[in-house]
Write a protein that binds this DNA or RNA. Structure first.
Lengths: 196, 196
DNA sequence: TTGTAATTTGAGTGAACACTCAAGGAAAGC
DNA sequence: GCTTTCCTTGAGTGTTCACTCAAATTACAA
């Protein structure tokens, strides 16, 4: 059970926290433009201006740093996680578009994760799938509030189509930064709310 | 200019062709369940029952084998590349769904490629973007034929939304094999053809 | 100021990576 | 059967990977 017990010190000094920040920022940037598998300890340390020994003084493993960044990306996607039942579908979509345009690095991390999806990493895979389910449920709730005429299975199907299709839009944006996410997201949104 | 001149022999014996097939099959399977970066020479050779020396007798590099498989995946997606202007949008979508369900390995290769998109591989990146453009153009042609009332920019936008959204559907299918691609693809199709 | 613990240094570990090569064995043309 | 070319073998190349550790240095508390 690696990661269950932390063997790194308590980080009581300021410089430790600063180094930790530098490492996480470097990790985020590196995942964003080299992908999960292209992210190496050397790359992280080089970009952060830190030596490997210092990295391992603060993190148990490369994976722990990556997981921390992935969690950041997941948490950054959903607006107001508190107000579970009161956010409109449009707000949910707009929040995603905003997340993508304002936090490009994290958006790339999010897609890199959704794709490699923890191929040989059960911890990461579970996290990805749980996140997806929660996201679909949230979209479904919003749809149900605005379109009470739809039955439950139709509501759920529309939520699932919308969430996965939006990911497709963002996936392409990651490949081609000139791609206009907002326009296509808006189109998907109005399709989802169409009468039929 | 690697890959321009081939240094491997002419492959005149039957066993050479068989070994080549075994290697390409192993490469395809390995990309499908370990991703592009998780695909190693040792992995390929182990799965193919071949030694590294034999691999390099038939391929110049690991990248050459991967590119061959990627080209397979790209070519397998589009139905009847000859009849450019006569295929309906529904047929295009159905062909993609069929491709995904019948050739899961290649579909995974396709997504792996679309995602890692040749991050540090210009050859691969160019191929991916050119393929995407051609695909959008083909979808746009089909839409224009069935919906001549739409202006050109609207037609193109719908084609782009549909193609990227479909990729999102397939991306999720790759993560969760129980995901029903056909249903969601059909929904996207009818949305694309909606009046508004 | 001094003691202690956190932090940094930088060389070093073994494993896995892509790739090579000389030599032996097998398949085809003659 | 002889020759040539193809194919396979399997050990070996240098590089990069994630990760370690003892020693030096620094930051804070008292």
């Amino acid at each position: 059970m690696p990661g269950h017990v932390t063997t790194v010190p308590a980080m009581r000094y300021r410089s430790g926290l600063e180094t930790r920040d530098k490492i996480l920022r470097a990790t985020r940037e590196l995942i964003a433009d080299s992908g999960l598998e292209g992210t190496t300890i050397n790359g992280i340390c080089g970009r952060a201006g830190v030596l490997p020994g210092s990295f391992y003084n603060l993190f148990d493993s490369k994976e722990q740093a990556i997981l921390t960044v992935v969690r950041e990306a997941i948490d950054a996607i959903d607006p107001d996680p508190d107000k579970q039942g009161t956010v409109s579908l449009e707000e949910l979509v707009q929040a995603y578009v905003r997340f993508v345009s304002e936090q490009g690095d994290l958006a790339r991390v999010y897609i890199a994760m959704a794709v490699s999806g923890g191929r040989n990493n059960t911890e990461l895979k579970g996290r990805v799938l749980r996140h997806h389910e929660g996201r679909v449920a949230r979209f479904a709730t919003a749809i149900a509030r605005e379109r009470p005429d739809l039955d439950q299975s139709e509501t759920e199907r529309r939520a699932e189509t919308l969430v996965t299709a939006l990911n497709g839009i963002v996936l392409h944006y990651v490949l081609e930064p000139t791609f206009d996410v907002a326009i296509h997201a808006k189109a998907l949104l109005s399709d989802t709310m169409a009468p039929a």
